[in-house]
Design a protein around this nucleic acid. Structure first.
Length: 862
RNA sequence: GCGGACAUGGUGGAAUGGUAGACACCGGAGACUUAAAAUCUCCUGCUCAUCGAGCGUGCGGGUUCGAGUCCCGCUGUCCGCACCA
């Protein structure tokens, strides 16, 4: 008997599959198609356990679909543009292109040993000119259809490095390299008109039946449809050409509680007033130092500045309210101006208390109007409350009814308009960076913005650039930048902004259907392979990537690049959890409330630096205490990365694949543990050993055992099939563990055992394809196990003759009873009433109630 | 701040509203062995304990014959917030 040698076995079968072109995706007339896709990786240089988990899940689905007779498309590519390549170039020298393609080659080499069922002939990287050239072509089509336009937008500006910063490069309001306070700056940039599709993108969510509810909810909230009232507040003294201020509110029912009017520091009026009030100019400038992210703005300390202006209440011209500039008002949402109602909005109340503004009593309340102190009363939209209608007096209504009534009144009396607004903003795609897809337009002094001619595509990134000075190297590359105008031929300048990398990932799934075509897609390939039947990726992409892709599919349909049936490109979505791992930190000088040491602010420690002693964790060979950090996502900075290549070298790919699927449900995080990997490996060795040993000891067989083994086998087929089809991989694996134990202990004959083991190898094949091929071959299976038809559970083996039912008394389990499967209800009831425990509980009385759920449970209520 | 999710033994987790803890790790006992490794068998939620009994799914309420599961309110942890990918 030979020991299981994964390195040899895995390489052998990978070569065999390659040679047979087992995973080449071919259009077929007689097979149903199945397109399974995992979110493609960014080529950071190393694959990590998260990748292994993601691709293994997709591989299980793909291999199961091959076995159920589908023509499967399972491709892989690289999301290859982005900042890390430029950062690497700045820090270590070299070129982003070399760095990226080098990483791709490395990662492909690390990925291949996993034995994934990928059609590598379709591989591409988004930084291939063949890919981004087609993307430029799409951009020009979108431009022609009016799906792209230019407008001003605010960016983070580093005044020292003279460069635009991403939100993640802004640390505590300062540039990550220069440390200089970041400013906001307006630039003219390109935008996709995604907001025009707000309603459609929202409504279509209802049809995404195989998407997780939480993702659909997040998308709905992100699109943020709201119905509200837009109306004007007249300035008591017009100024700088402004006579009134437009306000949008979703809570017009609280209008009679208004205390002040607030406008954004970026509101045109606020900007106009800067000219004659240096203090206001300084205040606005200070506000603009906050980062541009919504989180920064919302979490910043609420601050305001009194403009000295006043406005008249629309329902009572004698009621004058002050106008404040406030840093928490977003210019991007609504009209950039709000009215503050302290009684019914906590933020407004806090603001009024801070700046000593009047607080009007609640006029919407559970019973009668009452004063507020530190807690605002937010009127519920669905529950009835007493509400003061400014026209008809006190009424009882839900918040929603009050809102609707106010909007109706406003429209009838013509002082306001009911409007529907969406939180979703247009998608700004311009990036002031080198390593991205060039935007294919030229700026001509005569003709203005001129689209590049399609025959000139791809507009290639120049290779001869340097990163020794700040800013975008395309800006200072005269031979690339300075070109004649495509229309008039006059000297003109190329657009030096490149596209957001989200653009690259918004249509790659469509490109996989015809990756080498000289158009973005090919009609018949797209028609055959789209949609993606199963898309798998991280929850972190629940909003942006998926929403952008949904928009792109619509835009591509409008431009004739996708069939109408593909405007929702992902039929089913699964969001998998992360792979976490223990991490260690030095203990600090403080203890928590239970007296345990807490960790210091100093960084993390590698596991090899830590040792366990009788009285706790210490740095090896020292008295420095160490604190175990709860399992956390693997990352370099946490010093808790486990390299998949090391695991594969030690145990083989099948062990890594089995482990990442086994311990946790796929949607939840899984913690990598050495003991778990060890257990997975032991199991695979055991299965190999079972299949290699003499199957039967003739002195220890029992013909009756054949039936038991077959029953267990068919129950396992049923459970594993269900698990594989419903992302219950961990449950499927538990059943496979149990079935392996059953085979090992079975006293069945050789034929029955051989059949059981062959079936075991088939059921394990999606997870452990190499081991399964090896066993399949050993036991005389025909061809590859990957091509063998998926086993079917025979219902005849699934039925049981008798069943054990728990007996509950008042809902608590007290005994159990074994009865024939098909016993009739009356017979079962009389058996239950004779039961000792029931007799004791009844003490001679009749039961109040007897609940019998056939095949499940009996409950006696006394 | 806003939005979303999650919470079950020493650990990861299982459980169409119906026997809570499947399966695995850790731990314990034993077999095999000169010995070790490997392998195999059995035990293993907690408390009291002889049989057995009581308690038990983050906390507080509710619905139900019956709640880990459904509803309401908390607490804690994690994820996203539009220029990270």
């Amino acid at each position: 008997m030979s020991r299981y040698a994964p390195a040899e076995v895995e390489a052998k079968w990978q070569t065999a599959w390659d040679k047979a072109e087992t995973f080449r995706a071919v259009r077929s007339n007689d097979k149903p198609k199945y397109y399974v896709l995992e979110m493609f990786p960014y080529p950071s240089g190393r694959i990590h356990m998260g990748h292994v988990r993601n691709y293994t899940m997709g591989d299980v689905i793909a291999r199961h679909r091959i076995a159920t007779g589908h023509s499967v498309l399972h491709p892989m590519g690289w999301d290859a543009f982005g900042m890390p390549a430029e950062n690497a170039a700045m820090e270590r020298g070299g070129h982003p292109k070399d760095w990226t393609y080098g990483n791709i080659a490395d990662m492909r080499e690390q990925m291949k040993p996993l034995g994934l069922s990928i059609d590598w002939s379709r591989e591409f990287a988004t930084c291939d000119p063949e890919y981004y050239g087609q993307q430029q072509s799409l951009f020009l089509d979108f431009l022609e259809k009016g799906l792209v336009y230019r407008k001003n937008a605010t960016v983070n500006w580093d005044p020292v490095d003279m460069t635009v910063l991403a939100n993640e490069q802004v640390i505590d309001g300062k540039g990550w390299r220069s440390g200089a306070p970041v400013e906001r700056r307006d630039l003219t940039q390109w935008f996709f008109k995604i907001s025009e599709y707000s309603e459609e993108l929202l409504a279509a969510i209802d049809g995404l039946d195989a998407w997780p509810e939480k993702v659909k909810l997040m998308q709905r909230n992100w699109i943020g449809k709201s119905r509200g009232l837009e109306f004007a507040w007249a300035l008591t003294a017009p100024t700088h050409g402004h006579t009134e201020i437009d306000v949008y509110t979703t809570r017009p029912d609280t209008l009679m509680g208004a205390s002040f009017l607030g406008i954004s520091p970026d509101h045109p009026l606020a900007k106009a007033l800067e000219a004659d009030d240096p203090d206001l100019a300084a205040f606005n400038a200070e506000c603009r130092r906050t980062g541009t992210s919504e989180e920064d703005l919302e979490r910043a300390e609420k601050r305001g500045f009194d403009t000295g202006l006043t406005v008249r209440h629309p329902l009572d011209p004698s009621w004058e309210l002050p106008v404040w500039v406030a840093n928490f008002i977003l210019m991007d949402y609504g009209t950039g101006a709000i009215f503050g109602c302290p009684a019914h909005d906590q933020r407004d109340l806090d603001f009024c208390r801070k700046y000593d503004l009047p607080v009007i009593d609640t006029f919407v309340s559970v019973d009668n109007p009452q004063s507020v102190d530190t807690d605002a009363f937010v009127p519920p939209k669905t529950e009835k409350v007493r509400w003061i209608n400014h026209f008809t007096g006190i009424e009882t209504a839900t918040g929603q009814e009050a809102i609707d009534a106010t909007i109706d009144q406003a429209e009838r009396d013509e002082w306001g308009t009911g409007v529907t607004k969406y939180r979703l903003r247009d998608w700004g795609l311009s990036r002031q960076r080198y390593w991205g897809c060039p935007i294919p337009v030229v700026h001509c002094e005569v003709c203005g913005v001129v689209p590049e001619k399609k025959e000139n595509l791809p507009i290639r990134l120049p290779d001869d650039v340097a990163f020794d000075q700040p800013g975008n190297p395309l800006d200072r590359h005269p031979t690339w930048r300075d070109v004649p105008c495509p229309t008039c031929g006059a000297p003109a300048k190329r657009e030096t902004d490149t596209m957001d990398t989200f653009v690259d990932s918004s249509w790659y799934f469509a490109r996989f259907t015809a990756p080498q075509a000289d158009t973005p897609t090919v009609a018949e390939d797209a028609a055959y392979w789209m949609n993606v039947d199963q898309y798998i990726g991280g929850i972190e992409h629940a909003i942006l990537h998926l929403l952008y892709s949904r928009f792109f599919a619509r835009a591509m349909y409008i431009c004739g690049h996708l069939p109408e049936s593909a405007i929702e490109p992902f039929d089913a979505l699964f969001t998998q959890g992360m792979v976490t791992h223990a991490a260690y930190r030095r203990a600090g000088p403080f203890t928590d409330s239970e007296g345990n040491p807490t960790y210091s602010r100093q960084g993390f420690l590698f596991p090899e630096e830590v040792e366990q002693r009788a009285d706790g964790l210490f740095i090896k060979g020292s008295e420095q205490r160490v604190v175990a950090h709860p399992p956390i996502k693997m990352s370099k900075s946490k010093k808790n990365v486990v390299d998949p290549s090391d695991i594969i070298a030690r145990y083989g790919a099948d062990t890594a694949r089995w482990f990442v699927l086994s311990d946790s449900p796929p949607e939840r995080d899984v913690e990598w543990t050495a003991s778990g990997a060890e257990a997975a490996h032991k199991h695979l060795s055991r299965v190999y050993r079972l299949a290699s040993e003499e199957l039967v000891d003739p002195s220890d067989t029992n013909p009756a055992a054949d039936g038991d083994l077959l029953r267990a086998m068919h129950r396992t087929i049923e459970a594993v099939t269900l698990g594989v089809e419903s992302f219950g991989f961990n449950a499927a694996i538990a059943k496979l563990y149990a079935f392996t134990g059953t085979i090992a202990k079975s006293k069945a004959g050789g034929d029955a055992k051989r059949e059981a083991l062959r079936t075991l190898s088939q059921l394990m094949a999606p997870m452990t394809p190499h081991l399964s091929e090896e066993i399949w071959q050993k036991l005389g299976g025909e061809g590859f196990v990957v091509d063998a038809p998926w086993p079917k559970a025979d219902p005849a083996y699934l039925v049981e003759d008798s069943v054990t039912l728990p007996i509950q008394i008042n809902g608590k389990r007290r005994d159990e009873i074994t009865v024939a499967k098909d016993i009739d209800k009356a017979a079962l009831e009389s058996l239950v009433l004779q039961n000792d425990a029931v007799q004791r509980a009844l003490a001679g009385n009749q039961p109040k109630k007897l609940i019998v759920v056939p095949g499940r449970i009996v409950n006696v209520v006394v």
